[in-house]
């Protein structure tokens, strides 16, 4: 839903980041308003997963320039746990397994961390059970998964459902979903996409990071951005995704070369989108 007057939730300006001194993000610009669904597409190595990790505060990535503001406040200054508590959510491409830590307990601690930040009362085990059982519906997940260790022995699809369950419990304002579609069969993809659609509201925003069009058949984005070599190369509406599907990423390479040449001449970042 495009609402030009809706408040800006996330404002990324000329964001540059490196891992092990290797620059990956080379000036990303993106503005996300409440109610919007954005899709960032691109080849492997284009920097789209790095973008999601930098936003969530992964310690392996160093921000080397630019700024990110979340509802007007500097996001990059905050520890990852603090970003989560104020409503930023990252759905992982590969959710890790955490043996020995009960999924239910983990979900409760996480939910309460978010709730107390928002001034809400923490939920005791009973109240939380009620809430979690209700939210399980969103992803049609078997309650048996609550009793297991976090993600341990879960199939790829179950792990992704567990991610969306966390999103349903944490009620983020900005949800970044990193390749949520990877490794899912069509049924699981439908359930996961259905969950994301159900959770989208005029108050929150979703940033989908994806390789393929197939997720966008199920979740309709308001904006599509194509990333290459650490920058957003082109932005448009959903038709851009359809075009990519038709023509592949070859034109991206050509465009990239052209911009590189231009960029050298002018010494400026090649493209500004927002």
């Amino acid at each position: 839903m495009i609402c030009p007057d809706a408040p800006v939730l996330l404002e990324i300006r000329d964001l540059q980041a490196a891992v092990d001194d290797q620059p990956i993000l080379k000036g990303v610009n993106l503005t996300i308003r409440a109610g919007e669904i954005h899709a960032v597409m691109g080849r492997n190595g284009s920097g789209k997963s790095t973008l999601s990790k930098v936003l969530a505060g992964h310690p392996a990535y160093t921000v080397t320039g630019g700024s990110v503001h979340y509802r007007g406040n500097d996001l990059l200054d905050l520890a990852p746990e603090q970003r989560a508590r104020i409503g930023l959510f990252l759905g992982f491409q590969y959710p890790v397994e955490i043996p020995g830590v009960s999924n239910l307990e983990f979900l409760r601690v996480a939910t309460n961390a978010r709730r107390s930040e928002g001034g809400l009362e923490e939920l005791d085990t009973f109240a939380f059970e009620d809430l979690v059982r209700e939210r399980l519906e969103v992803v049609k997940m078997d309650p048996a998964f609550l009793e297991r260790s976090v993600n341990e022995g879960f199939s790829g699809g179950e792990k992704k459902r567990n991610e969306i369950l966390q999103m349903a419990l944490l009620e983020p304002l900005v949800a970044i979903l990193d390749e949520t579609d990877s490794g899912l069969d069509i049924d699981a993809l439908r359930i996961v996409a259905g969950g994301v659609n159900q959770l989208a509201s005029p108050e929150n925003a979703t940033l989908l990071i994806t390789h393929y069009q197939r997720l966008l058949d199920l979740i309709t984005p308001d904006y599509v951005h194509v990333m290459a070599a650490g920058r957003i190369l082109r932005s448009g509406g959903r038709e851009l995704a359809l075009e990519l599907e038709r023509t592949g990423y070859d034109w991206v390479d050509q465009e990239l070369e052209r911009f590189a040449a231009e960029g050298q001449q002018t010494g400026r970042a090649p493209l500004e989108v927002g």
């Binding site: 992964h58 990852p80 970003r83 959710p95 996480a110 961390a113």
Partner: peptide, 8 residues
């Protein structure tokens, strides 16, 4: 990082 990114 996974746990931290959930507010823990």
């Amino acid at each position: 990082f996974y746990l931290q990114s959930r507010g823990i």
